[in-house]
Design a protein around this nucleic acid. Structure first.
Lengths: 197, 197, 197, 197
DNA sequence: CATGAATGAGGCTTCATTCAT
DNA sequence: TATGAATGAAGCCTCATTCAT
């Protein structure tokens, strides 16, 4: 029965991610979730306690999965330095493309939470440690300015890629819809690489 | 009596902005809103129809007020070109500082809406037209690269400043809390101006 | 609309008394209560807050009504002293007969509460003060023993009459069903008057 | 394995008594009971059928155990007659003290049942038969009045002792908290013995 | 016999909205 | 216009009980 339970739990979690990402905490109905996941409503409470804890579990799962991709970044080396900005932009855009729930969960979290869960730092720090070191080397080589810290550098990249994913609706209307097509993403990367050099 | 009605309407709208920005559409209770605004619940329905329309009205108001500040940008001239990036960054950061409801309403809107309201384009376009022209001059003068379009340029600035306002909670934890202090904002502007040059 | 509300409130309270007395706090369903009282479920929450507070209100009402009858006791005077025991027994038996919800609410309260509400003391003390004085006179006249305090005296009377009302089901079976018929009540009073003399 | 089953059954019953006495039928959760008794939930259903039957079994057990103490009363003889009232009061007070579940189960039973189970009569009748005989002798000796039947006599004693155990919470507040201390119990017996003589 | 997964009915409470004075 | 009573749909959660391993 362990197996059966594991599957049920997983169905709940997968559906929770989908619905919470789409509708937010308040906008998600436990009943819909149960129906949609094809499990008994009670199971949700048996496995996750309550709606709030389920939301946290979903958030952790989404962040965890998305950040698992960042492990690739550890393989970057000095030879990648000239292309680093473009590589990172492409990488983070890709993360958002492959994990469409991510920016939405981040969005809900920032709107609803008073404080970020503690596990968030750890989850990012793994790749950051490596990149920070690499960036320093780049600075020494004159590729990056000594007057721009790594924090500001990475902040900018994350901001741009997050904004691209999250503000599609308003920015497509206010700035330009073309930026959000497939082609748009590519030229965005190219132009930004120029911008940041 | 006309005057009294105008005031009532305004109290409702102001409170709606505060509560919708804070708690979102689903998280806001009409009754709380009425109590908080010290008006009768029925007035809300009389003036705004229903909760959804009230949310739209609040959103329009917030966007309108915030973008009113962009009119200042029209006064920018060629002499400002060397400092343009810093000026714009400071400007947009200030807009967010003075209109804390803005990024939250943008956030809710992006998460909940399927399509942006039509009035959004007009609201931004006024200042964009001027800046676009200025940017073109800057390109001709060699201040800005010919290979980076205005759209990408402005996109980047908006992304960074929006992200700074909206992702405070998660980014302070994952990147660095210092970026979000008063000092942090300043050095952000400085460093980004360097980054984008 | 004040009048309409008062009626609704009263319907709820009356039904609450009936159902809580019959089924207890846990055994009573708010939905049944609403249906039975022919009011909208929501009104219960509007007027009484929640189930617990409604229970308290029902309890207060029952105790209040029942104890209102004790005001008659204040009219008792020295001339009643020889008959006092019989008078009081009859009185308390009558109170239970006319307020069948009383002993049940007392029962539920004793089983479920950790502490009695404060208003309970006041409600009884009015008649007790008078009876206590009368009892003292009776002691001086040699009608009541100096070695039996008023507290024990009244405790005994309340115990017997309460038990008669509340333990009908078990006592009728274990002792004798006759004690609980109309005749039985009368001979109970008579014999107890003898017993206590 | 028979032995193990017996122990399990007993654990369930003991816990059922504790919880049903404390929280009543509706207030008791089968799951809590299973956890608390450290047995599997399924065993409860295997041994007792359902919640209702378990409640009955618990009730029977409590009544049985408490009334087993009444067998002592059979040893009373004519020489005890002058002290009979005090002896019985002390006895029944003791029964309640040693079986705190008793008055609560009686309470729940009286509030929830329409009719008492048949076994209740038999359980009491054993001691009553002896006491009735003794009482008759006492009447002949002039110790008890001929005009007070044994039923009324025993009813009074049971009422007082039951009330003392069951209405502690309300009576301590309305009459006097002192009656419910250790000393209070003693003086209650003394004074009542006087009262009934 | 033990375990814990699964079920479905139903419990308390709250919400946006409309009605009646 | 202001007030607050009324409504009904629906939200979150829990319970006793049964099933499957």
């Amino acid at each position: 029965m362990q197996e059966r339970a594991r599957k049920t739990r997983e169905k709940i979690l997968a559906t929770a991610i989908r619905l919470f990402a789409r509708d937010g905490f308040e906008g998600t109905r436990i009943d819909d979730l149960a129906t949609s996941a094809q499990v008994n409503r009670q199971r949700i409470y048996a496995y996750f306690g309550n709606k709030e804890k389920l939301f946290e579990a979903a958030m952790l799962e989404v962040f965890g999965r998305a950040n698992a991709e960042d492990e690739k970044l550890i393989r970057l080396s000095k030879t990648d330095l000239p292309e680093l900005t473009a590589i990172l932009l492409r990488h983070y855009l890709n993360v958002h493309r492959h994990h469409p729930a991510l920016h939405r969960m981040v969005g809900w979290a920032n709107l609803q939470l008073k404080k970020a869960p503690l596990w968030m730092k750890d989850i990012k720090e793994k790749s950051f440690a490596h990149l920070r070191e690499l960036y320093r080397v780049g600075q020494k080589q004159g590729i990056f300015s000594e007057r721009v810290t790594f924090d500001v550098y990475i902040f900018t990249l994350l901001a741009v890629t997050y904004f691209h994913a999250s503000n599609r609706i308003t920015a497509a209307q206010t700035i330009s819809p073309e930026l959000f097509t497939g082609e748009g993403g590519k030229s965005l990367v190219e132009q930004m690489s120029i911008l940041f050099s």
